[in-house]
Design a protein around this nucleic acid. Structure first.
Lengths: 361, 361
DNA sequence: AGCGTTTCTGCAATCGTTTGCAGTTTATCG
DNA sequence: CGATAAACTGCAAACGATTGCAGAAACGCT
């Protein structure tokens, strides 16, 4: 069907081995035959068969990325970054979706190594440490975003303690004293670390921690809604909510919408991780950016390093941190300022309607 | 490193061929040895090497999905659906991102067939018809969402004429007479078809088509912004905009926000294809749902059918259509109703603020 | 028991590459 | 020119599975 090395060799009247050496450029052939073979191969449209090559070399030119889903904007950009980087190096990306489910993760991992992937970037569930550890003997692995505590695999993490600290401090600087926190499960690194950053900022500002303001939960929008309700039903509800669990954001917004709570007038809202629409939402939503793009790039760097180093790319470093940064938009307001007059509407919405009128002609 | 068939055969004191036959279940071995081998293989933790197998059989158990990006919500759910379906059948999905760029598409296609993928679902750019046609001789291909007019490949399409018709009719029924349309490039099927559905609805309602209300452009948010400005700057701007180009939505929203245009009071907005946040946006955005999930499922069905049929899965059908449906939310208003009083604010926002007050306590 | 079937098993070739080894050519230099 | 080293080339064996073919074993039947 397709042109094989043998065809090329025959056309050039040399042996298959010579052809192989010439085309892979191992430098063991004379300049002349080398060039001749390259030319002939091109003319014939020869493309090496990665499967056959893989069988011999044990490599597949396939690198897998295993994430939880594609709904999460961070995972999207990571996937795009990883794919783009790998492509330029002649690798294909095998994108797998594990759904944050240990069983699925485990299954996927085994089929991946069956396929003799050359490398793996994984956002671990944290429940398959032993398996990961074993696999890492066969194939370079880099963990991304989450640490699997049962392993000492190289891991590229967002600086969640810092990010949560930054976000909380921002709210405190705006005058907020009661800050609700909705955070991820406490059996994940990010969940714990974001909580700790929040606590540190509070402590630093001399605000005593109030556990009724802190809610941890699963990574689904429903959690956000439930937590938001609990927070808002408090006898003394918070003046700001820090949604440090990306998936919960939609749930929180639903609840504020249901209750006709105006952001930021009635409640300041700060979220973690960007979504493309946050910028267009009204009010535009302020966030702590975890640096997804940087994380992905670094993970690829580290993986490539390990793949080159053939097993001992161990530089001693176990953990890389990518800095978070605060992006201020319009969903957090200064609390010291007098609340907007109830009757006259807030500044933004009144200007809104007048401008709208003119736009209508 | 890992357990090979030879190891199993040795352990069972049979030849490799017997072992192979027993484990692949070709039925040419005695019941007893078969079971014995299966047991031994399990004990040894034997996992067949897909690469070696692939070399011999020409199959890879890899199916590729080539989409333009992962930002588009439709592509996300398609990727998730395809991945999930394939996994249960023992295939791995190779997700590729072509960026709607013919060059990238072409490159990706060649490396994919190099890897001897068993099947391909592709959202074609429309510029590589010849190549696709050629490849389809080697590997089953199903086109998704877009048709490549240069081929007669089996194609699974959204029913765009119907979707656009439905959406436009909805706006007409609400009393809109001047309906702006922002639609995709006219060299794509969906671009043309959505335009035609819009036109049909107009004609059916006896509204004469006004070409100043129709804008076609590339699939990026900037296009949406540009088109929205042009529409709103018209001497007689439209009372509703139908954004039939998914990527343009954010741009349109930006412009309405910039100009403080209140939706739906000042302008009704109807979009094409859902995004998870449309439901939470205020106002919640009404859409025409193209049925991404169904599309993906059907594409997988057709692909599997072709893969089974080994080359002649040609049932004569070239084109499958998946129905669109209208999802009404809050971004389109009845135009016959008197516009809300300018001073007193709209119903929704006044109730909003009072409820907010009580929520604050 | 003898013969023909049927059922099972093993040998060996094959898929398309890479690569160690040995053999052959070419270059180098006295 | 001839010896020696250097550079190149080809043979053949891998890699780990599948599969056609032929031989061996088991079975049924007269």
């Amino acid at each position: 069907m397709s042109v094989t090395l043998k065809d090329v060799a025959q056309a050039a009247r040399v042996s298959v081995s010579t052809a192989s050496r010439a085309l892979t450029g191992t430098g063991l052939t004379s300049e002349r035959t080398q060039q001749r073979l390259v030319r002939i191969a091109r003319e014939l449209g020869y493309r090496p068969n990665p499967i056959a090559r893989g069988l011999k070399t044990g490599q597949s030119r396939l690198v897998a990325l295993l994430v939880h889903n594609l709904t999460n904007a961070s995972f999207q950009v990571m996937a795009e970054v990883v794919q783009a980087r790998l492509k330029t190096l002649g690798y294909q990306m095998l994108l797998c979706i594990g759904g944050d489910d240990p069983q699925q993760e485990s299954d996927t991992l085994t089929t991946l190594v069956d396929h003799r992937i050359d490398g793996l970037i994984v956002v671990p569930t944290g429940k398959n440490g032993a398996q990961l550890e074993t696999l890492s003997k066969d194939v370079p692995i880099v963990c991304l975003v989450r640490r699997d505590d049962a392993t000492d695999l190289e891991t590229v993490l967002a600086d969640d303690p810092q990010g949560a600290y930054l976000g909380t401090r921002h709210l405190i600087e705006l005058g907020h004293k009661r800050i609700g926190l909705i955070v991820g499960r406490q059996d994940t690194t990010s969940g714990r670390e974001r909580l700790s950053g929040y606590v540190r900022a509070l402590r630093e500002a001399g605000i005593t921690r109030d556990d009724t303001l802190i809610h941890a939960g699963h990574f689904v929008p429903e959690t956000g809604a439930t937590c938001a309700r609990k927070l808002l039903d408090l006898p003394r509800p918070p003046s700001a909510i820090f949604v440090a669990n990306h998936e919960a954001t939609l749930g929180v917004l639903r609840v504020t919408a249901e209750r006709n709570i105006v952001i930021p007038d009635d409640l300041s809202l700060l979220c973690y991780e960007d979504m493309p629409w946050f910028e267009w939402h009204r009010p535009a939503i302020s966030i702590v950016d975890n640096g997804a793009r940087d994380l992905a790039n670094l993970a690829v760097d580290r993986l490539l390093h390990r793949m080159d180093a053939k097993g001992n790319g161990n530089d001693g470093v176990r953990e890389y941190r990518v800095g978070a940064k605060l992006i201020k938009r319009d969903s957090c307001r200064q609390i010291d300022a007098p609340p907007p007059a109830r009757s006259g509407k807030s500044k933004s919405s009144s200007s809104k309607s007048s401008a709208a009128k003119s736009a209508k002609v």
